[in-house]
Amino acid sequence: MIIGSHLSIAKGFSNAAKEAVEINANTFQFFTRNPRGGKAKDLDLDDIKNLNTIREENNFGVLLAHAPYTMNPASYKDKIWNFAKYAMEDDLKRLDVIGNCLYNFHPGSHTGKGSEYGIDRIAKLLNEVLNGDEKTTILLEAMSGKGTEIGRNFEELKSIIDKVKYSDKIGVCIDTCHIFSGGYDIVNDLNGVLEEFDDIIGLEKLKAIHLNDSKMEFGSNKDRHEKIGEGTIGLDAIINFINHPKLKDLPFFLETPNELQGYKKEIDILKTRRK
């Protein structure tokens, strides 16, 4: 089972990897730069070397790099859109140095311009960034559908992918809290949800899972993560999710409201219930 949590790289990538080992994880997610800003620390090549030593010694799976929340590739404002383009280009160069990473980003918000406009803006950005030689797969995150978010359903994600020239470099990250809040009933009809995903996007495009419980009710379109087993999705549904034959080999990343030992507790529970 490939499972980890979101960890800070403020003290270095190798320190985050050590923390992952401490909580019985074999991967982790990290922000590529300040999640509420735009600055990224220079890469320390010795730190990256130490990171990769730890990854090899502990049989780590792929890492998940998360773009900053300030990126909005769906924006009609050139300054915001250009920052998203710069950040993604820069992030992908940095991830090529680290190696064996996926890159996840929120598709963004159309802020009143309409979803079709937002989808076109996202695809335009991806087409200007990608040249087909990237080592890193870029993941569109499925969203809960609050406000003017793009990616509120599988059809919107598919529309973006279809407009990208190098679509083989694009995948999807499902967040259990997001899609449950977005109206996909993974508690009572997981098979039906996966069949719908496969029919619209194709399960081969599903590359990673954000594994979270939800504070909000089904179909609320609100993004409020909860600790595993303490929300409206519940432990049984989450255990069913991680054991599903079409999902069990994917990497799982916890984004629950926890400190390090809270993540360890969740990972231990999930590993114990893994079939």
Rank of each mutant, 00 (worst) to 15 (best):
S167W: 00
E134F: 10
E134G: 09
M143I: 10
K158A: 11
A142H: 09
F180W: 00
G132W: 07
N153K: 05
F180Q: 07
I161P: 04
K169D: 08
E149L: 06
G132N: 13
D162G: 11
K165L: 11
D133A: 14
E155V: 15
H178Q: 10
G145M: 03
S181K: 00
V164C: 07
F154L: 11
E149A: 15
R152L: 06
K135H: 08
D133F: 11
I174T: 06
G171L: 14
H178P: 10
G147M: 09
F180E: 09
I150L: 12
E134C: 12
K146M: 06
C177F: 01
T137H: 01
T148C: 00
L139P: 02
F180V: 07
V172F: 00
L139W: 05
S159K: 15
K165P: 08
A142Q: 12
M143Q: 12
L139E: 01
V164W: 01
L130S: 13
V164E: 08
E156V: 10
R152W: 00
T148W: 00
V164M: 07
S144Y: 00
C177D: 07
K135C: 02
D133T: 15
S159M: 14
L139I: 11
G171Q: 13
N153P: 08
I179H: 04
T136I: 15
T176R: 06
K146D: 02
I179G: 05
D175L: 13
I174S: 02
Y166V: 15
K135I: 01
N131S: 15
M143K: 06
E134L: 11
E141F: 04
S167C: 13
A142L: 14
C177L: 06
K169I: 13
G145N: 03
F154P: 12
I150H: 07
I174N: 02
L140M: 10
Y166S: 14
E149M: 12
M143F: 00
D175K: 11
V172Q: 01
F180A: 08
S144I: 02
K163D: 08
F154M: 11
G147Q: 06
T148R: 05
I170F: 04
M143N: 04
T136L: 10
K135P: 03
I161F: 02
D133L: 13
L130Q: 10
G182D: 03
I160L: 04
K165D: 09
T136A: 10
Y166F: 15
L130W: 08
G132K: 14
D175I: 14
K135N: 15
D175P: 11
E155N: 11
C173W: 01
A142G: 13
L139C: 03
K146W: 00
I160F: 01
N131A: 10
I170E: 03
G132Q: 13
K163S: 07
T137Y: 04
K163V: 07
F180R: 12
K163L: 12
V172H: 02
